[in-house]
Write a protein that binds this DNA or RNA. Structure first.
Lengths: 176, 176
DNA sequence: CGCCTGGCTATGAGATTGCATAGCCAGACC
DNA sequence: GGTCTGGCTATGCAATCTCATAGCCAGGCG
């Protein structure tokens, strides 16, 4: 991985709290969170199913699900079976579905290196039945490896404000 | 996501401890672990650089690095600068490099949903400068979404033995 | 109208993670 | 051979995560 432009000298800057990976880990960084997410991807929507299939306690499931709903990863919507009272189910939002690459990447890696013969489950293309892989990919469609990548600053990005902007009395010192 | 064959009835089986994602999370599931991994992907190899660039304490860095070496993700190799004593650097093994998809997937998701305008850094193709994406992909090269995937049992896989097999005295109840 | 049940919440204990601070030690340098 | 320094370790405390257990409550049912 190469750093280009102003990033080239790594002693001159630090990513600090602005790292997207760090922010992502704050939301989905616990074991229960990822496993819950796996289940959601598998199609699970109901509280009890989450608890049973993930193998966590109800308290933990409730906490994580609530947190996911607050984060916008899951949508909590009422449902009702005939003769039963109204309950809620948890379905993936767009934001949640877009975590699929992360979930699959972990699974792919675990299958390859942490299991005797590739793990108990295989993910396949529903149409063809062929294998599914997940790798970084360039615009042209070519697979890229670590050495093929470069990092450039994103000029559109602005550091998040964490205090109310002060009335300016000189050049602002917004996280240089 | 659809389950095929014997997996179709989800009330009949549980993945339990055999989940590759769970095993992966046991190794790289903490915040410091992922951030350390990010730095390793960025090309960092030395103890002090890890500590400074990730923003964790030396104790935590030492613990995680040791754990990574034990897991086979990093290789600890001696190096020596002229006039300095021998030290060790930590470089990604094949196993470690193959975590790149997981790291990039998290970054991609964080950039998209947790940042004001796409996060501070952009990953690009070193050759073309074009954007890099990471998505599940079928054999044909087609991008696949959640609904395009299916899960089938992996017949090659055998559950890891954790106890000596008992002499059978009836139908075994190994994780129904 | 009171009981029962499925779905969720509350509480407390133990393990893990992380920070801050201080300490150790191999070996380069004098 | 003593001292200094960069690289790593040890200790103590706070926060978080998870489990186990118990409790609550809406509303269907008798």
């Amino acid at each position: 991985m190469t750093f280009l432009g102003p990033l080239a000298d790594r002693s001159k800057w630090q990513i600090g709290d602005n790292c997207s990976i760090g922010k992502a880990m704050d939301v989905i960084g616990s074991r229960s969170a990822i496993l819950l997410l796996r289940e959601a991807c598998y199609g699970t929507t109901r509280f009890d199913d989450f608890v049973e299939r993930v193998g966590i306690t109800e308290a933990v499931a409730a906490a994580r699900l609530k947190q996911f709903v607050a984060a916008g990863i899951l949508d909590r919507r009422p449902y009702r079976e005939p003769g039963k009272r109204t309950r809620h189910e948890y379905v993936l939002t767009r934001m949640g579905r877009d975590l699929l690459p992360a979930v699959l990447a972990l699974m792919q890696w675990g299958d390859a290196y942490l299991q005797p013969n590739g793990g108990p489950l295989r993910v396949v293309d529903r149409e063809s039945g062929g294998p599914v892989t997940i790798r970084p990919r360039g615009e042209s469609g070519k697979d890229l490896d670590l050495d093929d990548l470069a990092i450039v600053p994103n000029d559109a990005w602005t550091p998040p404000r964490r205090t109310i902007p002060q009335p300016l009395e000189g050049p602002s010192d917004t996280t240089p």
